[in-house]
Design a protein around this nucleic acid. Structure first.
Length: 577
DNA sequence: GCCGTTTTCGGCCCGACTGTTTTCAGTCG
């Protein structure tokens, strides 16, 4: 999809315009358009001019630029821009502490075009000869360059959340905090996190700042003020804290949860209603009288909006829906009745079949599907036909012992490079549920991979397509696949699509979840557990589903066992649920 | 550059902290 290309080019243009000192609102318009294109969820190259202009933040001019880029693969305005301002300056903006004004100064007066040149000047102590730059700034720039070199930009939420919880635990034990919460993208359950934001109330903010900056894992204090501090942890993760009064906690929580785009929308609505919204509360414009702010809910009430769950706060339509009081009733963890993708030690899991049900039963589930790999995945000790029959006997024996809970006999069947499956129909029909997935041939063309998955979905015994894009966040890109086609096929054949809850997968990605929902595709949220601890990953899948606006009715494994089995049989009979 | 049940022109969110300065610009979120 060209969405990412166009989004990147608009973001880059925004950076360059900023260095040029252009109108800030024009710059914001480019960024907003870039963001909305990235989260569009459908292929921008298929839209008409009128449909382009329907995208929020895209008017006649940007629609024209998009069309030009799609038609020619180039953009005149962009090429003009980089004649004025070298493209490489964009990387300078990535140095923490270095903004457009300084970059512009460095370039226009000293011809600094990239990080190497900047670093050289700083090391030779030439930078501090520049008016407005002294010793401190020079050292900070060097530190910023170091930081940029060693830290990856964003971390998967699965790695960040435990750290955030540790910090919350530490602060409640070592600082005089009242209310305490993670905010920012952690609270919104974004799939990757840039930094951790912590918010607290306290009678003694200075003591909180001290405790925070003296936490055991702190490697460096970037900033320490009376109510706000920033540190870098061992390992490079940045953490911000902010302390406010009890009366401001709700407003501050809303503010620091973001997203920035969502906040801007709220403030615009406030301004239109003669109000002013900031992190301290919501105030009447004419006499500055405080109307609320202690509770987050108040902010939305006063703005006449439905309360927006943090997962939806991305300015992708939730403000409009909240205004019309038509937000979805989001799926909750307690709605989940089972897990449809679980491995035992019959293939590459480490759980005995006999122990498999223990954790799910404790969670209140009614069923899980045992979906070990099929023979094509040799590295994962995939099951051959004889082993399938053997395992089935073991599963049946287990089910005789279980009350109110069922182990479904399943398989994670390998989709071969030509779209065929590892087993023939005779074996396939013996399973309660068949989950199909791609584990090889990642380098195939988009057409081939798409065709492969479509072919697999045509099979009446395939109930779910697992980890549909194959991505591993920060480790492996998704294979090239036309996800819109796949979702269309899923809708046509009555096949469910998995939301894989493993934190490094989180696959299906969020824009496609919304698209799937709009096409009436059923989603299965599964942990792909290989050990008993991984059942807990369900919360990541549910949160991702919430970010995709899913409700209970959209999710296959919220069904009770009978309804689930009826659905599976229906596709087997008619090819469509 | 976008947008409009007050508007097709004139708006467009708001504050903390730092560093280099004597009152504030730049950066960040």
């Amino acid at each position: 999809m060209k969405n990412i290309d166009i989004s990147n080019i608009f973001n880059k243009m925004a950076d360059l315009l900023e260095i040029k000192g252009e109108n800030v609102f024009r710059i914001r318009a480019y960024r907003k358009a870039a963001f909305n294109i990235e989260s569009l969820g459908k292929d921008i190259s298929l839209l008409t001019q009128a449909e382009l202009k329907d995208i929020p933040g895209i008017g006649g001019d940007l629609a024209g630029k998009i069309e030009e880029y799609l038609a020619t693969g180039r953009l005149q305005a962009y090429e003009e821009l980089i004649k004025d301002v070298p493209e490489s300056l964009v990387t300078l903006l990535k140095v923490p502490g270095l903004g457009p004004k300084t970059v512009s100064l460095l370039y226009s007066r000293y011809n600094v075009k990239d990080i190497d040149a900047l670093e050289r000047l700083a090391r030779e102590h030439e930078l501090k000869k520049i008016p407005g730059i002294r010793e401190k700034t020079e050292t900070n720039i060097l530190k910023g360059i170091e930081m940029l070199k060693r830290t990856s930009a964003r971390y998967p939420i699965g790695k960040v959340l435990p750290v955030a919880n540790d910090i919350l635990g530490y602060l409640s034990g070592h600082a005089p905090v009242g209310k305490l919460s993670a905010a920012g993208s952690v609270r919104r359950w974004k799939e990757t996190i840039g930094d951790i934001d912590i918010l607290s109330t306290s009678e003694d903010p200075a003591a909180v700042m001290n405790a925070f900056t003296r936490m055991p894992d702190v490697k460096e204090i970037l900033m320490k003020g009376p109510t706000k501090s920033t540190v870098v942890l061992e390992g490079g993760l940045q953490v911000d804290i902010r302390v406010v009064d009890e009366e401001s906690y709700g407003a501050a929580l809303a503010y620091f949860t973001g997203s920035k785009a969502h906040n801007i929308r709220l403030r615009e609505i406030a301004v239109k209603g003669g109000l002013k919204l900031n992190e301290y509360g919501i105030f009447r414009e004419k006499d500055s009288r405080k109307m609320g702010g202690a509770r987050e809910e108040e902010i939305y009430e006063i703005l006449k909006l439905q309360f927006v769950p943090p997962e939806l706060r991305e300015d992708t339509g939730e403000v409009e829906a909240a205004s019309a009081h038509s937000l979805p009733h989001l799926l909750e963890l307690k709605d989940i009745k089972g897990d449809l993708h679980v491995h035992s030690n019959w293939s590459d899991g480490n759980m005995e079949l006999e122990d498999l049900a223990e954790v799910p039963i404790a969670k209140g589930y009614r069923y899980i599907a045992v979906t070990d790999h099929s023979k094509g995945l040799g590295v994962a000790r995939g099951l051959h036909e004889e082993r399938v029959i053997e395992q089935r006997k073991a599963i049946d024996a287990m089910n005789k012992k279980l009350r109110g809970f069922r182990l479904l006999a399943g398989i994670e069947i390998n989709i071969k490079n030509d779209g065929g499956l590892d087993f023939d129909e005779e074996i396939l029909k013996s399973f309660d549920i068949v989950v199909a997935s791609v584990h090889s041939g990642f380098k195939q063309s988009k057409e081939q991979i798409t065709k492969r998955i479509l072919t697999a979905m045509e099979n009446p015994f395939v109930s779910v397509i697992a980890h549909p894009s194959g991505r591993l966040i920060g480790e492996r890109e998704a294979y090239e696949v036309d996800m819109e086609e796949v979702l269309q096929g899923a809708s046509k054949t009555g096949t469910a699509i998995e939301i894989n809850a493993y934190p490094l997968r989180l696959d299906l990605a969020e824009p496609y979840i919304r698209l799937a929902k709009s096409k009436g595709v059923s989603l299965a949220i599964s942990t792909d557990s290989h050990n008993s601890g991984q059942f807990d990953n369900m919360v990541f899948g549910v949160s991702l589903a919430r970010r995709g606006w899913l409700e209970k009715k959209d999710v296959l494994n919220t069904l009770d066992l009978n309804r689930l089995l009826i659905g599976i049989k229906k596709k087997r009979k008619t090819g469509k649920t």
